[in-house]
Simulated assay, not measured.
Amino acid sequence: MIMVMAAPIALPVFGQTPVTNPKGNQTTAYDLLQQEANQTGGISKATLAPLVVNTDLPTYNQGDTIVITGHVRDTQNATAVTLRVFNSLKNMISVAQLLPSADGSFTKTFLATGPLWKAAGNYTIVAQYGLYTNTNSTFHYNGGDGSSTITKAINSTYALQSGGQTYNIPYIIKGGTVSSMSILAPQYTLEIALNTNADGSITLTLPRNMIDAKVPPPPNPDANLTGAKVDTSQLEDNTFIVSVNGKQVTQFTETKNQYVRILSIPFHNGDSKIDIVGTVIVPEFGPIAALVLAIAIISIIAVSAKTGLRFMPKY
């Protein structure tokens, strides 16, 4: 894991420059499409699969909300993604169409409820984009009696303040609510506080210029002498380290593109905290805050020099 500590008055680690936002101080996960890849980092488009589709959990019960995330590599104007759900008997039981976001990512929910959701077994989601691009994903359904039972899911956005910007983080949570999200810059961690009342999951869309995970670069003995900085856009993606209530978990799914990484993380009733650890993160104080602090220090020095003001007693 790359652990590059930021200076006391720091720009983002790895020498990243803050993204200019034409809308002011608001940055959403999907606004990142407006930035060049060499500004935001990310991965090469050529490494992405043409079409990806995932579910937030491997198994569902009657009444559950199934959260589907995906990505289209080569988007076409006004072309929708078609999602079809087939039960264990190969019968189609649900269908939906949706336009992917400008960056190619998409999220859709299905309710596992009603008369068509009876048979237990392995179900298949078939995603199709255009005439020739398709893929699928499977999950297990534990079966039901056909009644219209619904387990509540919350689809919302959290405004996270960090690095002098506001990041609006879209999320879908089942089995609880989100109390807070916060950046722990020294630990390269996004911390999420939860109130849970049942087993569930949370699906988050995380912008890469806020938090990312990269494979360490090759050793460079001359880096300290030359002041060379690592360009994260040239590094291979690594897996986030995710822990729930302090215990590391590996059973989570991810959908990603050049600009965002979408994580679906399961949790149990009673869990109260999720930590997502990366290797690149925005600092606690952005460049504007650093500038204000520097001006304040210079002003204090200038005033004290001019007036003879002392902060320590003279002996």
Rank of each mutant, 00 (worst) to 15 (best):
G42N: 10
G42W: 05
I43E: 14
I43R: 13
S44A: 15
T47N: 14
A49P: 07
L51V: 09
V52P: 07
N54F: 09
T55M: 00
T55D: 00
L57G: 05
P58H: 06
T59W: 00
T59P: 00
N61V: 04
Q62M: 12
T65D: 06
T65G: 11
T65L: 09
I66H: 00
I66Q: 00
V67R: 13
T69V: 13
D74H: 13
D74S: 15
N77P: 09
N77L: 14
V81C: 01
L83W: 06
R84I: 04
V85D: 03
V85E: 09
N87D: 04
N87S: 02
S88Y: 01
L89D: 10
L89Q: 09
S94Q: 12
A96T: 14
Q97W: 03
L99H: 12
L99N: 14
L99A: 15
S101G: 12
D103Q: 04
F110G: 06
L111A: 10
L111T: 12
L111R: 15
T113C: 14
T113E: 11
G114K: 07
P115C: 04
P115F: 08
W117A: 10
W117G: 04
A120K: 06
A120F: 00
A120W: 00
G121I: 01
Q128N: 13
Y132E: 10
T133N: 08
N134R: 08
N134S: 11
N136K: 05
N136Q: 12
S137M: 12
S137V: 08
T138N: 01
H140T: 13
H140P: 04
N142W: 07
